[in-house]
Amino acid sequence: MNLVLARIDDRFIHGQVTVGWGQRLQPDLILLANDEIAADPWQARVYAATVPPQVTVSVRGLGAAAAALRDPAAALPGHERAILLTGSPADMHALVAFGVALDRVNVGGMHFQAGKLEMLPGLYVDRDDLANFRTLLRRGVRLAVQAVPGGREVLVDDGLLAAVEARL
């Protein structure tokens, strides 16, 4: 199985993912990795209801998602092209810490919450997010902020993180 996109997006499955990235990348699987949603079958069904019929949705907690990604042939048989979604940098970092090999992560939706500062237009972070971005960078993960294919891509690097941290 080819992981065609690993994305951080606090809306999880929505138009930018299913239509924007989906039409470009033609996934047959969306793996949503989130402990809260995985623990609530109703929430999982709501998210799964919004995808095109050719796409399967698998909602798993972080540990189970990592295990599946380490051995997709056994855990996710029959799928060729997968999109991985987490709701935060912390969750993406957790997957990497659980042994998932990622060389690049797309940073999509991180919306405003109290205590967060705008890092790039429409993208809000706090110190915890910055720390997780830094750890991902140190692990060799390329971080690119890009809402949709064809949109502006901005690479996240230590300089950008330091500049944001100075404003926090």
Partner: peptide
């Protein structure tokens, strides 16, 4: 506006 997007999910959630 769109049955397959975040507004649909948010309405149900």
């Amino acid at each position: 506006d769109d049955y397959g997007g975040s507004c649909a999910s948010a309405s149900r959630l």
